[in-house]
Design a protein around this nucleic acid. Sequence first.
RNA 1: GGACAGGUGGCCGAGUGGUUAAAGGCAGCAGACUGUAAAUCUGCCCGCGCAAGCGUACGCUAGUUCGAAUCUAGCCCUGUCCA
Length: 409
Amino acid sequence: MTQYTSSLLRLLSERGYIHQLTDAEGLDALAARQIVPGYIGFDATAPSLHIGSLVQIMMLRRLQQTGHKPVVLMGGGTTRIGDPTGRDESRKMLSDQTIEDNIASIRQVFARLLTFGDGPTDAVMVNNHDWLGKLGYIELLQEVGTHFTVNRMLTFDSVKLRLDREQPMTFLEFNYMILQGYDFRHLALHDGVRLQMGGSDQWGNIVNGIELARRKDGNDVFGLTTPLLTTADGAKMGKTAAGAVWLNEDALPAWDFWQYWRNVDDRDVGRFLRLFTDLPLDEIARLESLDGSEINAAKVVLANEVTKLVRGADAAAAAEATAAATFAGGGVGQDLPSLDVADGSIALVDALIGLGFAASRGEAKRLIAGGGARVEGQAVTDEAHVIALGGAEIRVSSGKKKHGVLRPA
RNA sequence: GGACAGGUGGCCGAGUGGUUAAAGGCAGCAGACUGUAAAUCUGCCCGCGCAAGCGUACGCUAGUUCGAAUCUAGCCCUGUCCA
């Protein structure tokens, strides 16, 4: 491992954020002597980011922790184009209003993890629609077009993969890398930004921006990418059965968020603690060395710490309490999904659907027939079973992990 | 504009007139084993229905046929090559 002099690169490297770096010595020297404003771009394709973006957000947090300035770039403009990287199919076009709404919603998460303000190391949020939207076509071609050769653009993975797989790539998407390059150049020129970070799949796009900034304005800027995060069994992070693990509370309840982290693979615990929590490294080393079932304690810490950062301390505490009550005590935690039952009784099938454990009656019945449905911890195999509440809360479970509560209304 | 190839369930991918709600794989869900882990084995995996059954579904539309994902025509979309 390279020995870095700047606290920024030391921290990033110790905690496993660095995959590629355009100029390690140059950036290290810069970070050691001045505040480095660094940015990461985020798409606004959904009302919430999911944990696939959490590494990037954490990187901005690390930047701030080590005395530098995080710049959050919202892709209000580029989202209108659609990043072809890693995609086989073109994105659906989003309306302007949807994109604006998404940006407003996504902003909430950043407010928890970064300190915004006007100070030298305070975070700021910018929207590339502000400059890309004003750019005329002729102007863009003149400004940027002369610095990109099609020959080179065709060699980029984002393009090449699409072509190799004989998937369509529209001209619109083909231009994405140019606009992203333009972003970096713009931020370097107008806001003194010196560093762009991103996932490893963004390497090509980042390098484009660096070259553009240098050729057009003689600005010397840097790029850093994080390793592509996969879980130990090779899956892309952040996808579960129920869909993505969203960062926003209104997109995914804190309980489910907490559970995601509680259930990570043993092998991922240490890595995730380093990346997604602020715990000191020696503490993490201790947690990750726990053997056998003791590693579960480390997973609880992981779940608590990440939930605290993203959802707040109250949410983390509530989720942990619910987990303790539900799994250890056999009781009912307050955080579980619940369903109000008006008539004093409900068919098990409807309860499973109402709690979100089954999407259709058929699916609920299959679950019951397969022995996966439980009422108060007891497996029920009668598809026609009706639960009588009798004024008390009843616990209904799908399998051993998904629990919900029926409340008398 | 022309020639050729192709468009099948969340994804990949068989299937070229009936036994096809559509092989197989992946992903997913559940059971067993466990530690709310991994691996492994087993079952499930379009909707409605207790069920018989019904409804939808193989790019779209119209046809041929007792019967079509499979044949015909037109259209839409994609790729490759040519202009």
